[in-house]
Every structure is written in structure tokens, then in C-alpha cells.
Design a protein around this nucleic acid. Sequence first.
DNA 1: TTCGCTTCAGTGGTCAGACCAGTTTATTTT
DNA 2: AAAATAAACTGGTCTGACCACTGAAGCGAA
Lengths: 211, 211
Amino acid sequence: MTPYVNPPQNNTKVYIGIVKQLRSMIEHDGLKPGDRLPSERELSERLGVGRSSVREALRALELLGLIETRRGEGTFMRDFRGHQLVQLLSTFILQDKKSIRDVKETKFLIELDCLWLIIQKAGEDQLLRFKKWSLEADYSDDDFFLEIVTLADNHLFLRIWIILKDYYNSLDLETMMVTREQYARLIETLISRNESEVIRVYRNLRKLSKS
Amino acid sequence: MTPYVNPPQNNTKVYIGIVKQLRSMIEHDGLKPGDRLPSERELSERLGVGRSSVREALRALELLGLIETRRGEGTFMRDFRGHQLVQLLSTFILQDKKSIRDVKETKFLIELDCLWLIIQKAGEDQLLRFKKWSLEADYSDDDFFLEIVTLADNHLFLRIWIILKDYYNSLDLETMMVTREQYARLIETLISRNESEVIRVYRNLRKLSKS
DNA sequence: TTCGCTTCAGTGGTCAGACCAGTTTATTTT
DNA sequence: AAAATAAACTGGTCTGACCACTGAAGCGAA
């Protein structure tokens, strides 16, 4: 019913326009994960385009992991976190030595940045709670650093890191064993807020001799 | 001609199957950026599916930045290196427009990371060429740091930084005046490869007292 | 020959319509 | 009221038809 009838979408491909329309529609209506989108036929009619064009847009968004479609039911918003996207990209990119190096390099440096941010910003209580968690919980390396990046309290780094993490994991590199002690030591140095020591411990944990 | 007719692709959606077929086709034929893919009609025939399904797959890959289509010419492989990944990310970063602080913080830290990378990896000649450029050219802060990030030779950081830069500029913050001397000093410390000094000079340049 | 124009086959872009295969809701039957 | 059935939706897919654009082949004039 609502007249989402577009801005004159000149020149660009229809399906791209539809993607944009969908985004503003999602924002406008405040759609959240789990919510249903209008049906393909309704979108087609509302936007004044063919159903096949609507489908091209929806399929693209689906491959991106932004939406989910269930036959007979409809199309739904999804709780996206890059998963789908990263997985697909990684299968395509493959064998690109430099890309792989970039991913590793970037992931490590951002983790280091977050450690630095924690030293600057985190409260004593947060760090102690983190320490407590590390002693009790059963966690993987990803879990551990997700906590780190979360503690750093920077939304952008969080998002970037999550994507890098997924991408990194999809690379299927040899996994580095990190002992409980190493994690514990890192936390201790965080609590002591010793910048250079944190860097040292982190590099050691990541088996980074120098670079 | 070649019978790419693969696994019966049961159960999954046709367009997903086509994406997979395309990937193996690309791998099998060793297609590189710039190379042309078979036409939609040919793919449709080869894979025994409808052209609309082929299009759904191609449109999705296009939105991902893996391929590029030109009307009247065809569909071509694209030079992808994870950049689209970040670009996609940006459209969602831009959604939560809350944290200006995060943008600044992230931009600065990434610039610092790049400076560190340069110290580690850049060759003497590159640095000298950079210095020469800085003495002759007329550049803005963005120009200067674009050089920095480029020198760091990390595609992901480059992409992320560009997005952050654009976003940062759109925030319309008070611009910080940076003198030519400060840029020059930064370059000098880079050439001397003095890590802690680079950090100090950079912070000073960005007017970051401590954090 | 060589240059310039026209023609035409090929390619992506888009739409409309037709089915199929599931799910949900309404209706009828028990 | 409960169960079985029917209708109305929703996505999934294919086909065929145009359109707009590109590039190369063909052709004629210089």
C-alpha cells in the first residue's frame, strides 16, 4: 500500500535500484532480523518492476546472507554477520597469497589495537570480570578475542574483526596452539596496563617473532 | 561445448548450484580478471537450466563484486581482492551512525598500524621517493595518508581506510591544521625506523595527548 | 587498397505469463 | 469441537518475447 515508488532510478540497473529501495524500506519500517518482507509479487507491483528483477535483487541479498527465503512462507530478514559473504568470497579468492597475508596481518594488528584500547579505556572491574570468565569458561581462540574486541568498546573494530575472523577461519590455515597460560598472562599484563609488555605477550601468543 | 554438467544439484536452489558450477568452471578453465565468461544463454543451455536462474546467480556474484557485466559485450571476471567485502561492510557500518568516536578512533589506529607496517616492510627507496614527493607535491592530509596507507601495502587496510576517510570527512568535524614540518618530521622518523618515535610524532600530529 | 557506413548477429536488461511445490488460512465435513 | 479438505498465498523455475547496446562482417565509395 505504502507508496515506496522510487526516485527515478535512472541509468542504473533495475535490480540495483531494488536493492536500494529494499534498504530504505528496511530502515523506514525498522525491520529487524526475523521480520518478514513483502512478497515478491507485492514488491514487483509496488515498485512497478518485473518480478524477475525483484528476484535478482533478493537472490543477491540472499547470497550475501542478509535475507532468508522459505518457500511457501516468504522472505525474512536475517541476523547477518558476514558469514555467508565471507565464506563465498573465500572460496572464490582462494590461492591469493597476498590476500591471505593481508587478512592475517590485518586481523593481528586490529587485535593489537583492541588490546591497546583496553589498556586505555577499560575499567578495573571489567578486566577482573574478564579474568574471572577466562578462568571458568571453556573458550576457543575466537571466543577469547571476541571478548577482547568487545572490551575494546569500538563498534567498527568489532564488526571488522568478526568478518576478518570468519574469513581467516575459512582459509584453513594450520591452527596455532595457544596454552591457557598464555591467555592468562595476556590478561595479567592487561590488568597491569603495561603497554609494551602486552605487545610482547601478544606477539608471543601469535608466534610472531617480530613482524 | 564442454560438458560442465555436474552433480545433479539436488535439493539446493538452482541458482546456488549455478554459483558453484561457475566457481569450478572458473577454476577449471583458469579464468583470470578480465576474462570473459560464457554468455547467459550459453550457460543456460550448457547447465540445462533457465536463463533467469543463470541471471539470479550472475546478479548475486555481480553484487559481490566478483564479476562485471557490460551490456552488449558480456560478463567478465573482476579483480577482486576482498575489497568488495569491506565495501559491503561499509553500507552497514554507515547504518549505525551513533559512534563518531569509533570512526575517529579507528581511523587513527589504522593509520598508526600502517605506519608500523611501513617501518617493517617498506624499502629504503620507497621511503625516499615518498619524501621527495612530499617536498614537491601539494597535498592535503587525506592525500598524505593515502600515500601512507598505500605504502603499508595492505589491501584491506587501504580499503577500510578509504571508507573511514570518506565517512570521517562527511562528519564535518573541525579540521586540524597540520604543518608541513610535522609531515616532514613524520617521514624522517619513518626513514629512521624508530617505532616509538613514530608513534609519538603521529600522536602529536593528530593532537592526541595520550589516547 | 582503404576508409567509412550500414547491417546484423550476439549479449545483457527487463518483463509477462505460466506452472510447480510448498505453507498457511479458511472452509467444510465428521 | 476436531479433523479433513479446499482455497489462497509464497517462493522456485522455465519460456518466450522485446529492447538497447556492442562489435564485427560486409559493402560501397574514394
